[in-house]
Design a binder for these strands. Structure first.
Lengths: 334, 334
DNA sequence: CTGAAAGCGCTAACAT
DNA sequence: ATGTTAGCGCTTTCAG
């Protein structure tokens, strides 16, 4: 690497102090505007670039937000990411993004790395198999703000941005029941994650209100990818359900394909209800009824709250839950 | 913020020098293993965390790769991102991600920011409306490796990872012609971006070989989002095409929906051919024929090449183009 | 195997 | 309005 130009080089050239140069470059109003202009001119001339690392070391901050995602390769994750990016960059924060690939071990390593990188705050969605969450204690102890979204910690005191998963599970199931479907299969994922647990509880509650007893055989836990979903649907079909409530639109679309192959008509013979309101809902046949799950908004709200906590240096003492509105989107499949 | 523990605190506690502590923490083999263990123990005890910022300042590196995306909210972008992330994190690099939201001005600002942040290298896909590319000169001048992928600079000497867009455009068109379609409409985006330009050239070449004269009225440039696509399809239908070749699967799916609404049978009345091999291709009816566009692999290759250049400190003097294999995926729609 | 000294580039406190 | 001094926390000589 060629020698980098520093503020000292500029100072020397102008016969002034490095301090003045620093102030000039930062447009500190205390500096004579003539001097400031000269500084900027020489800086440009010499090809100076601000050394954010040195500045950050001195200022003891990074102006960077760590984002810990369980997976980046999904529509929902990216919507959230887009929301975070938009809000953070508007406030002058950079994003350091890590993803855990649904692996708790990697999540821990990433947490530590982001801590070392001195991120000013952290936005997290937990990996599927994360059980203990003590790797976040480092942040809590140091009073570095952490905001969880979607897949959140359930026991610890923390800030979380979620949708009302219980209500969504309830509403979807209730909608199916109201339409006359009685034997509703449910495909979902690891119940240690709040999102899936709460939806299942909502499902149960709706059944209860309609005096339908809960049948364990109608519930399948799987990873919601294509193969796992096909397996789950095939298994569930043995119990002859008249509807599927699946906590992921992609998986629901896979299910619809399989039902079509079996010659079933949707929604006449069997209904399918998804979750997320992914773009694909509108593009498949029949169009998928689902729950709107506003990822972009979730990202925006999470980032906004985190930045607020960073700036005010004020972390809520108690659990703070922000609930994003969600709603039923009824299309053709149910 | 509570006072952070530094290597000096550890040194004091053990009555050794900070140098030794530093070496111990970095597992420098020159240090007595007993001493090393003691250092690690105390470090843990005091809640020490490595200060990457200070370390980076001293070492004059950041172990960070800047990623400049034109948009994060798409399946393709995220596949690439996942590929980059996987490769980079395996090699110990962090990702600083910025997106330009298809805006050249934002792209420039991001470039500068990443430069200041001392990223060790840059991976870029250009915004739709970027014309001049002198904002990358800062990197070239400083011999900081830059790898472009997908939407690349066409004139300047640089490293690029692409698919053979010309061939893809040719193959898709040729396939349609071979199947007997003769009046092929083409919907694509801004032709200053190589990807769209090259595909159009491929389209023209295939027509030429089949002695079909190029008809400008059958080509529409648009942003490929839902509204723009609908408008483009409606406009093109006036020319009574018997096939659509659309350079984006999502837009192709929107087109199929619209054609269904018009009561047209696909592929009997009219064919639709997409681009990307998005997951939705398999889920819509009819299943979409398309071009496989391996985003994940593109990301992996781009990151691997960038890291190679960083480590070897060896930037190719001439343009280096890496072409990722792509292929036709024939399903039901064409 | 360990330590002393220096310095990465910047900015904040304290002068003037 | 500008300058002096010091130090953020680490690693890298160089010396023992």
């Amino acid at each position: 690497m060629d020698k980098e130009v520093t503020i000292y080089d500029i100072a020397e050239k102008l016969n002034i102090s490095a301090t003045t140069v620093s102030r000039g470059l930062n447009n500190n109003p205390v500096i004579n505007s003539k001097t400031r202009e000269k500084i900027h001119a020489i800086a440009k001339d010499l090809g100076y670039r601000h050394n954010t690392i040195a500045s950050n070391l001195r200022k003891q901050q990074s102006k960077t937000i760590g984002v810990l995602l369980h997976e980046v390769n999904s529509n929902f994750s990216t919507s959230v990411l887009a929301g975070i990016e938009k809000t953070a960059s508007a406030a002058g924060y950079d994003l350091l993004i890590a993803h855990s690939a649904e692996d708790s071990t990697k999540e821990k390593a990433n947490t530590k790395n982001l801590l070392n990188k001195r991120v000013d705050g952290l936005i997290v969605s937990l990996a599927l198999n994360t059980q203990e969450t003590d790797h976040f204690d480092f942040f809590f102890e140091r009073k570095i703000p952490v905001v969880f979204f979607d897949r959140v910690i359930t026991n610890s005191k923390c800030t979380k941005v979620v949708i009302d998963n219980f209500k969504c599970g309830y509403d979807a199931t209730f909608h199916l029941l109201k339409k006359g479907y009685k034997k509703i299969a449910h495909i979902t994922a690891n119940l240690t994650r709040n999102v899936y647990y709460d939806r299942l509880e909502g499902y149960k509650q709706a059944l209860k209100e309609k005096k339908i007893s809960f049948n364990e055989d109608l519930v399948k836990i799987c990873s919601l990818d294509k193969e796992a979903t096909i397996e789950a649907v095939e298994e569930l079909l043995k119990s002859k359900p008249d509807a599927f409530f699946i906590t992921n639109d992609f998986a629901a679309a896979v299910c619809i394909n399989l039902l079509h192959e079996r010659g079933l008509n949707i929604p006449k013979d069997i209904a399918v209800f998804g979750f997320n309101n992914d773009v694909l809902c509108d593009l498949i046949t029949p169009k998928l009824s689902t729950i709107e799950y506003p990822g972009m908004q979730m990202g925006e709200v999470a980032a906004k709250e985190l930045i607020r906590q960073i700036k005010s240096n004020n972390i809520p003492k108690k659990t703070k839950t922000i609930t994003i509105p969600s709603k039923l989107i009824i299309r053709e499949s149910a």
